[in-house]
Design a protein around this nucleic acid. Structure first.
Lengths: 176, 176
DNA sequence: CGGGGGATTGCAACTCGTTGCATAGGTCGG
DNA sequence: CCGACCTATGCAACGAGTTGCAATCCCCCG
């Protein structure tokens, strides 16, 4: 039950409309907490009726109006409270791991092909994260607290993808 | 939509009743695809009516009867087919990452405490996985295909937990 | 022999996330 | 000015996962 809080973080970084939020989210926090626009709209509506955010309709030239959300005082309190509560670490959930473990019960060559495709995907993500790092945080020693946190989370993405690449490579080599 | 298939893998390794399966699962495949007993029972029921598994009631001495499930020919086909279909890699989903990114909007010391607790948890899991590895796969060079797959998946657990430890340690050090 | 407690299976209600579609305003090319 | 297409918001239905509880059956202890 944390999409609410993820949106609060995003809106505290920068107020936004539903669609803007969806787009920004998918390129930042969404790397670690995916969400579709429908989900975001629904949760924004709930948060508004809970008084966690405030909406202002903004007219635009050449485009439909948009509703810009910003975090209210109650939302700030809810966020601060949530930030201080312990997390129960979710175990990872990997369909691919199940396939790797079950490879003996099907066509092993086909499973290896699936693994190779996943490996390519993870390599691509790794490259993407590294590019983001180079572009946005060329010098990690001179960051504000806010930027430092953003950098460190992105760093987690890099580490995670590196691990995937290592793991899948090991798997493929063991079955070479 | 893969719990079905995870259960098929588990049942092909060894037929079992719902409860046995729940327990075994939580110490093997469940590391990569968590599921509660209620979920497992429900899915087993669905798989039975779909003809993917066959159930036999087994009387026990000193205990209630149990229903032992084994995979049918149709289940084997369904599993083999699923194993050969490409996966869309789920992005990771980490509540902790959201908290780390949002630390500026609450009490940073409290967030660091939450991170430390998570780090301890991941260290413990890592130790657990390493212990399992040493106990069950002392010599990874002499494994059957089936065992090799199991070993390699467990190896993924080790790598993943190592990554968590690295990441969270970096985070804590950066905010020291 | 009666009650606590573990094993085994299961129901019901709820939340969360996904998928597909709907609506409405606006631009722009032909 | 009509139709294709983008922006922006949203509904409805479904499926998957979670939580809390219920019903048996059986042993063992007092």
């Amino acid at each position: 039950m944390a999409l609410e809080h993820a949106l609060l973080v995003a809106l505290r970084e920068q107020p936004a409309s539903g669609l803007e939020l969806t787009r920004r989210f998918s390129r930042s926090i969404g790397y670690f907490w995916p969400a579709t626009h429908q989900q975001i709209y629904r949760v924004l509506g709930r948060m508004e009726s809970d008084g966690w955010v405030r909406a202002t309709t903004v007219e635009q030239t050449g485009r439909p109006d948009k509703k810009v959300y910003e975090v209210s005082a109650a939302g700030e309190r809810a966020l601060a409270e949530w930030l201080a509560t312990p997390t129960t670490p979710h175990p990872l959930r990997s369909e691919l791991a199940v396939k790797m473990r079950g490879a003996s019960f099907g066509d092993r060559a086909a499973v290896l092909e699936v693994v190779r495709a996943d490996l390519a995907e993870h390599r691509a993500r790794l490259a993407h994260y590294e590019q983001l790092t180079a572009r946005d945080y060329p010098d990690p020693t001179t960051l504000s607290d806010l930027e430092l946190d953003q950098y460190l989370v992105l760093r987690g993405g890099v580490l995670t993808e590196q691990t995937w690449v290592t793991w899948l490579t090991e798997y493929l080599e063991a079955h070479a």
